[in-house]
Design a protein around this nucleic acid. Structure first.
Length: 260
DNA sequence: CCAGACGTTGTT
DNA sequence: GTCTGG
DNA sequence: CCAGACGTTGTT
DNA sequence: GTCTGG
């Protein structure tokens, strides 16, 4: 029909009536994070009974399995399990909706059909040592890593779901809740993931508490961010140099050079 | 009543 | 499953 | 979140 | 532009 090779972009613009846009310099939302602490540290931080086997992950992407902390059914002990990132509601006919539900707005959790049930009774914590945001310029997408000032382990507020497909296929999945940004991140973006203070872990996980009051922007004073190696842009690339700080030249035409 | 959506982010 | 739109 | 695909027919 | 896969 209209797919002609050499001038593919121009052809597609014609095909889809695309407008030519000038991207603006602005950070986008959290859809990628890291978990690098050893299992021993997670066990300590979350009070796990057994020490999990973990290898550091420098580029955790949607649709992959992520480590989560949930309450053991029937008890209040915490357990680490892996869930697919991208929530699949129990009523979904197939799993394709999941990749759209990697985040959930905290303001509407109790109204949205996709999250309402999970918000009542299926909460989790998602351990992380940092998350990525991207600055878009005309030339490139520059990733930034956002962390606690001391680089320590923390936890996103999450929800999870149980889904059953045909032939006994069972899938458990999760989503990360977002809220308005704190003062530190607001100038560059108006949303950020909800981070739960360690003193509030039980309040979040035990669903008898409403939990609404915990879904606040985390304090600015405890956060830092810096530009990192753009190799992290590829979701399949997971080497430690993802978190390598880079010095961003003022001019877009200059290449990036490493600090240190 | 049935059919179809059910979500976020970002743009314009 | 449950809500909205027709 | 970003990267990469984005289509059909037929045949080997 | 918009959807899918990671």
């Amino acid at each position: 029909m209209l797919y002609i090779y050499p001038n593919r972009v121009e052809t597609l613009k014609l095909a889809f009536g695309a407008q030519i846009k000038e991207p603006r310099a602005k950070l986008t939302m959290c859809g990628r994070f890291i978990l690098t602490s050893p299992g021993k540290d997670l066990a300590e931080h979350f009070g796990l009974l057994t020490e999990p086997e973990l290898s550091p992950r420098y580029n955790i992407a949607p649709t992959t399995e992520v480590a989560t902390i949930r309450l053991e059914p029937g008890s209040n002990s915490r357990r680490l399990t892996y869930l697919k990132w991208g929530l699949i509601p129990f009523w979904a006919k197939d799993t394709s909706i999941g990749s759209n539900l990697i985040n959930a707005r905290c303001e509407t959790l109790s109204q949205k059909p996709a999250f309402r049930a999970a918000f009542k009774s299926r909460r989790c914590l998602i351990p992380a040592n940092g998350f990525y945001e991207w600055m878009k310029t005309k030339e490139r997408k520059q990733p930034y890593l956002i962390q606690m000032t001391n680089g320590s382990l923390f936890a996103f507020a999450g929800l999870w779901e149980h889904w059953e497909g045909q032939e006994n296929v069972v899938l458990e999945s999760c989503t990360i809740i977002t809220t308005e940004s704190n003062d530190f991140l607001r100038p560059i973006h108006d949303r950020m993931p909800v981070i739960i203070s360690s003193k509030d872990y039980d309040s979040w996980l035990i669903p008898k508490v409403s939990g609404r009051d915990l879904l606040q922007p985390y304090p600015s004073s405890e956060m830092i961010y810096f530009p990192v190696n753009p190799r992290v842009n590829r979701a399949v690339y997971g080497n430690p140099d993802c978190v390598e700080p880079v010095f961003r030249a003022e001019s877009d035409t200059e290449s990036l050079s490493l600090i240190d």
